[in-house]
Structure formats: structure tokens, C-alpha cells
Design a protein around this nucleic acid. Structure first.
Lengths: 246, 246
DNA sequence: CGATGTTTTGATCTTTTTCAACCAAAGTGG
DNA sequence: CCACTTTGGTTGAAAAAGATCAAAACATCG
């Protein structure tokens, strides 16, 4: 059981050393794995739902549709990510979740969270920590959309996708496969597919990246990160305040 | 003590009926009120800090500065809001916090949160709930920045500022005082001050709003909300899963 | 009253979108 | 296995949205 299935436990165990009871509790969140195929919609915006999920394998994305038909991708999900936590607050999902690649997700009941809250204060605290990290990442993206150029947004997207994959335990070196169409990229960073294409070409002409097939090579990572002002929000955490594990 | 000081307890008490012990615990978070003057910087981006805060009175904003000197306001704070929760994860603040009006805030230690986690599971759960609401609001803003026009963004800003004020227990009817310069508004919605001005004028010419002094009247709220696709994220919560209070 | 900061307006410039066409790769059905 | 459709990528030209620059009008506050 405890072999790396790339779920939540492995993610958390990098930060604290989980007790056997805690491992058990986490395992219970992931005891109903569900396989979904690329392109499948896991949850529709506005649909009733009271389940939360852990991603175990693959890549998914969350988006909202605006009145004029345009789409905004609000988040990409990778193994170890929790999602649909909004079910803790709203009866209807605020966004649509779709699988970008084949994937495995594990639904679990809201009641499990209440149980964690009373029986495993440290685990529950870690969920708050995850939430907090996400919030900071989302505000980084907010600043990117509000105040940076198309070129910088594309560079940032590449860096952050790779960063997320790395943190999810996928093997990624200086080259990786985003697995997104240029349209999807554009919807994530507020650009048209056409303009994403031009910016990718520009980055390639400037010898910052190289593309072949679906693969992207980051040729000058330092320069990219400098231009993008990219900060890895999974680095340098300080969790010394956490209550003891049970 | 329990008279409405517009702090966290009053906010939470609208959703659940707090036990005496819970009220006590919350009161302890707010036992060191600090008064700050309009314009004062409460916390600098990148500064070390391990305190969290509750807003008791007034209005503050959080922003980040980008490399090119531009600014993005990421959040406005009102009475009852928690902030600097990022201190639970990072040793350095990701953003700058400044008072937009004279204000009263209450700092408290990270350890208090750990204590809540073990002793008051329901309160701790409610903090997660607050966090979740914020996250959804932030993604709404993300979609706004990525995919909506300047006019819509200005309309949304007005509606959401008023919404936040109302939820903080301030008296606001169809007219209210944003208390922001047009530059600050622009920095919140990714526009220049000049363009904010033009959009405000346009909304006024279309008889959707009226301005006098610092006051804004929402003349046709229904139409504004329709154009903006505005959703009040403090409405319609479902907190039935919460563990019992202690 | 002078000094400073904010709002307003016009003119011009830049960035990004829109529209349209074409191409390559990958499926699909016969 | 081959036409055929579909999907995604690429490029150019024109249009639109918003930014930038500059100046003047207003406010506010010592």
C-alpha cells in the first residue's frame, strides 16, 4: 500500500514525517480510485456535488466559461493535488474539471474532512497549508494577467507547468511535454491561440526555448526565469508551527 | 466584550452559533488591537513576519510590485477579514499590506492557529472555509482579468467592493464610497488610471452609475450585475458538514 | 496661498485581437 | 490502404482595445 502511488500522502510526507495513523487516514481518502480518459469532463460548472477529490495520476484542468463564450482556465491539477474543496462551502461547483490526459482520481466524502478536523489536527493543518500555497500561486497568476506582457505570460506558463510536474513527482529535466494545445495555453493566460503561437515563436527565435513535437526544451532557464520573475512557491516552506501528529 | 466590534467572531457567528469557549478563543486572537493611519504600510513584501492578523476596522489593501515597477493590487481587506495567513507557510510576506483608510488590526501569533487546530476543530474548519471563499473570489478575479473588457472590470470592481463592505457589516445602500483613487482601482483590475477614468465616465454616460464627490451611486444595479456577470460568493453557503463546536 | 496629488480630456502609439488562409498530422470510414 | 474530414499549428493583414504622453482643471491640505 505504501509504495509511491503519487497521491496526497507522498506529497505531505516531504514536509512532515507522517505517523502510521495519519497514513491510514490519508489512505482512506484514496481508496476509491477512478480512471478517466483524456477529454472526459469530471465535473460540470454549476453541477451539484458534495465530493472532494485527490489526483493520483495524470493531468487535469479547471476552467470557467464566461457569458461571451470565452474560457478561462483557472488551474491545472497534477498527482497529489486536492480539488473540488469548494464543495466544503458551495453546493454547486464553481468550475468545470476536465482531464487533459488519461488520469486517475479518488473521490471522497465531505464527512472525511470533518473527521480529519477532529481526529488529525496536523493533517488538517496541512490541508490549510496546501490551500495557502495555492492561494499565493493564484495571486501570482493574478499579477501576471493584470500586469505582464504576452511574452512574459507564456514564459511563466512554461516554467510553472514544469514546476508543478516536478513537484508532483514526474520526471522532468530541462525538456518536458506540456500536453496542452496553444488554445488551452491561451485560455490559461488570457491570450488568443494565435498570439500564444507568435510568442512561442519569438521565444524560440530568441533561443530561449526549442520545440519539437509536443516537447519543449528550456534552453536558457535562468534568462527565462529572470524575464518572467518566476518564483517557485513550493520552495522554502516554514511549517514549524504545526501541531504534533497523532 | 461581545458587543459588535466587527471582528472575526461576528463574521463567523452569522454562519454557525458559536459556543462560549469558541467565543473566548476568538477573543484571544483580537486582544491586541493596533491602530494604524491611512497610508501606513503594515507589512512589506519580502519582510520576515510570523504574525497573522484580523481586521477590526477600516479598509486595507494587499499588493505586489512587479519588476517593471507596475503594481498589482491582489486583495482588499475589510473588518472581519483574516490576513497574512501566508505566514503559516512562508517566512517572508508575499505581498505588501497598506491601510487605505484609518484602521484597526489585531496581530496574533502562529501558535494560536496550532492551538485552534487541536482544541477547536470547528473554528479551524471555518478558517478553511474562509480561505476557500477567498480562493473562489480570487479565481473570479482571475477570469475577469484574463477574459473581460475594461468596462466590465470596472463595473465588477464597484459591485465587489460594495459587496465586501456590506458583508463586513458596513452600512451601504445603493450608493457608497469606494475610498480609492482611480490609480488604485486600475492597479486592482489591470488598467491604467486614465482608462479607468474613461470607463467610469462611460458607465456614467450610460446612466448605470452616478458620481458625486467620492461617492458612487449604482443607478441600475441589475444591469450592472448582468453586464459584469457578478456573483456574490458570500451567498448560499452550505456548511452542514462542519464538526460540532467545542 | 502655494504645493501636491487627483481627475479629466485629447492625440498618438503599441499591443493584442480578429479574420482569413494555408499546412501538416492524425483519425475515420469505406 | 486510401480519400476525407478534423484538429491543431502557422502566417499575414487589418481592426480594436488599451497604453502612453501631455496638458489643463480641480481639490486638498499644510
Amino acid at each position: 500500500m505504501s509504495v509511491s502511488n503519487c497521491g496526497l500522502a507522498d506529497r505531505l510526507n516531504k514536509w512532515v514525517s507522517l505517523t502510521p495513523a495519519e497514513r491510514d487516514a490519508l489512505a482512506r481518502l484514496e481508496d476509491r480510485p477512478r480512471t478517466i480518459r483524456r477529454g472526459a469532463v469530471l465535473m460540470e460548472e454549476q453541477a451539484r456535488s458534495d465530493e472532494l477529490f485527490v489526483v493520483q495520476q495524470g493531468m487535469l484542468m479547471c476552467y470557467v466559461l464566461l457569458d461571451d463564450g470565452s474560457r478561462q482556465v483557472v488551474r491545472f491539477l497534477f498527482p497529489g493535488d486536492l480539488f473540488a474543496l469548494s464543495a466544503l462551502v458551495y453546493a454547486r461547483s464553481p468550475d468545470t474539471v476536465v482531464a487533459v490526459s488519461n488520469a486517475v482520481v479518488c473521490p471522497f466524502d465531505r464527512g472525511q474532512i470533518a473527521k480529519l478536523a477532529t481526529e488529525h489536527p496536523r493533517l488538517f493543518s496541512l490541508i490549510l497549508v496546501l490551500n495557502q500555497i495555492e492561494r499565493v500561486i493564484t495571486t501570482d497568476r493574478l499579477a501576471g494577467l493584470g500586469r505582464t506582457s504576452a511574452r512574459v505570460r507564456v514564459a511563466t506558463l512554461l516554467l510553472s507547468l514544469r514546476g508543478q510536474m516536478r513537484h508532483a513527482g514526474m520526471e522532468v529535466g530541462t525538456s518536458f511535454t506540456p500536453g496542452l494545445t496553444q488554445e488551452e495555453m491561451g485560455d490559461a493566460i488570457g491570450l488568443t491561440a494565435v498570439h500564444v503561437n507568435r510568442m512561442l515563436r519569438q521565444l524560440e527565435d530568441d533561443a530561449l526555448i526549442k520545440r519539437e513535437g509536443g516537447r519543449v526544451h528550456l534552453l536558457d532557464e535562468a534568462q527565462l526565469a529572470r524575464e518572467a520573475g518566476y518564483i517557485d512557491r513550493f520552495e522554502g516552506l516554514d511549517l514549524s508551527w504545526l501541531p504534533p501528529g497523532r
